[in-house]
Simulated assay, not measured.
Amino acid sequence: MRPSKRTLILEAALRVIGRDGVAGVTYESVAEEAGLTKAGLVYHFATREDLLHGVHAHIAGQWEASMTSLAGAPADQLSDLERLDAYIRTTTQSVTRAELLLLLDTAGDVTVSAPVTGVLNRWAPPPPGNPPLSDRQLTMLLAQLAADGLWLHEALTGTSIAPQTLQYLTEQIAELAGRYPEPS
């Protein structure tokens, strides 16, 4: 099955962002990358802001689908630990420079970043309150930060960690997160 033109455009925009940064996203650059006319692009995205919002929604949809698949259920049907495990496993396998650049560029714009923020709010554990933290809160937070750090390391440095090492680190982070079971 052929990808829709909309998906083709969003994937092209991600390639442009990965290569040229968010500032490089123009109708011309994305249309050329997608092999479409500028008019074909405008048909799907009336403004550049619509396109960037679409890219955010596309990324959020991919992350949500990955976490749902790994967890075997939507976030609202899972425990905190089950959601965190899927979050860790998705974060440590889903790394692109384009995602990082897009998130950094739009971090202050709550409207544009809303799709990604929504996914993170559904899947990452809520931030704990003030210290002292319970052992469970502390290990879950450390596991989330370790997964985020691994994602950031690969996105920033462009250095891929060997697949076996990445799998090992992912399992260690997931094990840390599950060290303290759900309270009964």
Rank of each mutant, 00 (worst) to 15 (best):
D76L: 04
G149Q: 02
V95A: 13
G108A: 14
L133E: 00
P74W: 05
V25A: 02
E171Q: 13
I59R: 12
L152A: 13
L14D: 03
E64W: 12
L78N: 03
Q137V: 14
E175I: 03
A60D: 04
V112D: 06
A60R: 05
R89S: 12
L142C: 06
K38Q: 05
A143C: 01
P125T: 11
R19T: 13
L78K: 03
A146V: 11
T68A: 06
A162V: 09
H56A: 07
A155F: 01
L41F: 10
A71S: 09
H53R: 08
Q77G: 08
Y43E: 11
P74D: 06
R97V: 09
A39K: 11
L8C: 09
S69E: 15
L166D: 11
H44G: 09
S4V: 15
W151F: 04
E82P: 09
T117G: 11
W151N: 14
T165F: 14
T68Y: 08
E64D: 10
T37K: 04
Q172R: 07
G21R: 00
I173F: 01
R83H: 11
G40V: 07
A46Y: 02
L152T: 15
P181L: 12
R6N: 09
P131V: 10
L52C: 13
E175M: 14
R6F: 09
G129V: 01
A174H: 05
A98I: 14
A124F: 00
A75D: 03
V110S: 09
T111M: 10
T26R: 08
P128R: 00
D20K: 15
F45S: 05
A57M: 06
T92W: 00
V25R: 01
D85V: 09
L41D: 01
A146G: 03
A107K: 10
L70D: 03
L36N: 05
A46S: 13
E49P: 04
T68M: 03
E64Y: 13
A71T: 05
L51S: 04
Q62F: 08
T96F: 04
A13T: 10
L120G: 05
R15S: 15
L156P: 02
T90R: 04
V30K: 02
A73F: 11
L133K: 00
E182D: 12
W63N: 01
A13Y: 08
E28Y: 07
T165M: 09
E154P: 02
H56E: 11
L36A: 04
G158C: 12
D105I: 06
P3F: 10
V112Q: 10
I9N: 09
P115E: 07
A174P: 08
M1N: 14
L78P: 01
G24V: 07
G24F: 15
A86N: 03
V42Q: 13
G61V: 04
Q137L: 15
Q62H: 14
L176N: 00
S66N: 10
L142W: 00
L103M: 06
L141R: 01
S94D: 06
T26H: 12
L150W: 02
A31W: 15
L41Y: 00
I173P: 00
V110F: 14
V112F: 12
A71L: 05
L120T: 12
D20H: 08
S134H: 08
L14A: 02
D148Y: 13
L36H: 06
M140V: 11
R179P: 03
A46L: 15
L8D: 09
A75P: 06
P132A: 00
G40D: 13
Q167K: 15
M67G: 03
